[in-house]
Design a protein around this nucleic acid. Structure first.
Length: 581
RNA sequence: CGGGGCGUAGCGCAGACUGGUUAGCGCACCUGCCUUGGGAGCAGGGGGUCGGAGGUUCAAAUCCUCUCGCCCCGACCA
């Protein structure tokens, strides 16, 4: 490809809307162009990278017996009503009507359409297992798109679905997709950290997110400093410290006037003691019902954990009006005399622990509230957000380190969420002629997010540093000067090289500085330079973008040198945290 | 959804507080000359409904009201 006739218009200045490095560099490099909030065109360069990522995904999935198909974005609402997702998902799901007033949705994923296929075609145990996947546009009306390609509203997602005779078969298949994911990300040049993920209300035995650790990530996870425990903070659990037990039973609880003292910080000042001495009570509305979550003051309630425990769909902080209607007062809530409201207590609170807690009346708290005595510990579970430095529950030796990351992919043992009788009811006949339920798994990767993640991981002040596996061109050829010899030589090199490599020939009438800056910005793995001076010596120059290494080599050795340099840049697939197959 | 910020040429910005020639600068773009190892130089040139609507005024990029768009932060701890 010749630069002069291709579609590249790099920007010198940083567009002011961009903050994340990948956002800035992809805009400056003419990889993407914004169309609306969270909606982008992939320009020719970006398109090439995305296609390469898709190719890697296809190769790996085909390698584990995945079968590609294409399912539509436009889905009849009927299908989504069957699985209840039509009702359970909020505004993120775009609902539209056709000219005949029939309801449709724009698919965010394709469980409905693929399970419908399974129901229709998979009748016999002989048809199972099977894994179907596609790389298709997904539409999600995100509340807040951000970071360029990091969170967008329309994107390509590879979504894969596997169907199995039973859980054992799903369990047997799962490591294969897990390992394929590790290879996909590694081949794209990024280190992915597989972590245990929250599997939501359907429970199930397994879900993993593959994270790229990055300051621009939106997800938080913990890794143990000692063992291989790694988990999303939505799921992670640390060992909780215990309060010292009082030597003698505490005196009866005592009401203290605490006008305007509402937050734990206020209370700490008022009572001059540390936060673990307080009981924090938070009121939620779970699918319409009021519940109180009770936790020690030095921990925070995880809404995800609470939601899962309640098996609820929507859990939100209770409104002031809702509280007032029940006679509660925000800031003075308490499980003591909670008037029959459902109370869930975190495991940070143990029987006999003594706290300062709300009095369930305005401007008052209780001292000497004793867990188990002044309020029951009946419904108790882990509700706490994990904290940096908590002892690892898995090995009890290491501590948990908090990390921030970008979710590159998600694998999920779905079980029967979509095949159960109350949803799409998918069964097959086993060898004995008995009806058996089909068991599912689903697995997703966002293509654009992966692209942006690679740039987040691989860039410097000068620009992007693409791994050769997904670079839009492997090699950029730069001719310096306009002498006929140089141009003729560059032209010949271009003709030769493009037979073996993807070469961008920068044939523009620009100064060397401009060409070098653009080459660096755009991130081609190797830069090949021809100049008068080099030609006289029968040499060419190669520069490795990633290392800055410069190799002057005789023209005769060019191909061998190129092969060697590319070899060095190949990502390794050794030593990844593979799951035993 | 809540909070903050920003909308003036493709990109980055000035002009606005204190209304008043023909709305300006850098980069990019076009033409010519010149130059070629890290965003060169000279000369000439094209490009703007000042986000939109309404209002105040003799006069609005500038003041007022409404609205649309984009970006960032937050989305819970009583």
């Amino acid at each position: 490809m010749r630069y002069s006739s291709y579609f590249i218009h790099t920007l010198f200045d940083v567009p002011k809307e961009a903050e994340a490095p990948s956002h800035i560099l992809l805009l400056r490099g003419c990889y993407i162009y914004p169309v609306a909030a969270g909606v982008y065109s992939l320009l020719p360069l970006g398109h090439r990278v995305a296609e390469k990522i898709k190719t890697i995904i296809r190769e790996e999935l085909n390698g584990i017996d995945g079968i590609e198909l294409t399912m539509p974005v436009l889905n009849p609402a009927e299908l989504w009503k069957k699985t209840k997702r039509y009702y359970d998902i909020g505004a993120e799901l775009i609902r539209i009507k056709d000219r005949k007033d029939r309801e449709f949705v724009l698919a965010m994923t394709n469980e409905e359409t693929v399970t419908d296929l399974a129901k229709h075609f998979l009748r016999s145990y002989r048809d199972l297992p099977v894994m179907l996947y596609h790389i298709q546009t997904k539409i999600r009306d995100e509340a807040r798109p951000r970071g360029g390609l990091l969170r967008i509203r329309e994107f390509f997602m590879k979504d894969a679905y596997s169907f199995h005779r039973d859980f054992a078969d799903l369990d047997a298949y799962y490591p294969r997709i897990f390992n394929a994911y590790l290879r996909i990300f590694a081949r794209c040049g990024v280190e992915s950290i597989p972590i245990e993920a929250d599997s939501g209300i359907m429970g199930g035995s397994g879900s993993h997110e593959f994270m790229l650790e990055s300051p621009n990530g939106e997800d938080r996870f913990v890794v143990c400093t000692h063992c291989d425990y790694r988990a999303n903070t939505e799921k992670a659990e640390g060992v909780k410290s215990r309060l010292e037990k009082p030597a003698v039973p505490p005196p009866p609880r005592e009401k203290i006037a605490t006008p305007g003292v509402k937050t734990i910080a206020d209370l700490m000042r008022f009572f001059n003691t540390d936060e673990a001495r307080f009981l924090k009570t938070v009121a939620y509305e779970a699918d319409g019902d009021l519940v109180l979550a009770v936790i020690r003051g030095d921990y925070a309630v995880s809404v995800t954990k609470l939601t899962n425990h309640l098996q609820a769909i929507h859990v939100d902080l209770a409104s002031e009006e809702r509280l007032a209607a029940k006679g509660f007062h925000a800031g003075f809530l308490s499980p003591v005399e909670a008037g029959g409201v459902r109370v869930i207590v975190d495991t940070s609170v143990a029987a006999g622990d003594v706290f300062i807690a709300g009095a369930n009346e305005r401007d008052a708290h209780f001292k000497n509230v004793c867990a188990g005595r002044d309020f029951p510990l009946g419904e108790q579970t882990d509700l706490a957000e994990v904290r940096e430095g908590d002892l690892c529950l898995n090995c009890r030796q290491g501590t948990l380190r908090l990390g921030r990351g970008i979710e590159l992919g998600h694998t999920f043992k779905l079980g029967t969420k979509y095949t159960a009788p109350e949803t799409m009811d998918v069964t097959y006949l086993d060898p004995a002629g008995e009806q058996q339920r089909v068991i599912m798994g689903c697995y997703g990767i966002g293509v654009e997010r992966l692209l942006a993640s690679v740039v987040e991981r691989w860039h410097d002040e000068a620009g992007i540093i693409f791994p050769p596996t997904i670079a839009p061109f492997q090699l950029v050829l730069v001719a310096i000067g306009k002498s006929p010899e140089v141009l003729a030589s560059a032209e010949k090199l271009y003709q030769d090289l493009k037979r073996r490599y993807e070469v961008l020939y920068d044939d523009r009438d620009e100064s060397p500085g401009v060409k070098f800056k653009d080459a660096d910005l755009l991130g081609f793995p190797l830069r090949l330079v021809v100049s008068q001076k080099l030609l006289k010596a029968g040499q060419v120059e190669l520069k490795v973008r990633q290392t800055g290494e410069v190799v002057i080599c005789p023209q005769n050795d060019l191909e061998a040198t190129l092969d060697q340099l590319f070899q060095n840049l190949q990502p390794t697939l050794e030593g990844l945290p593979y799951m035993e197959e």
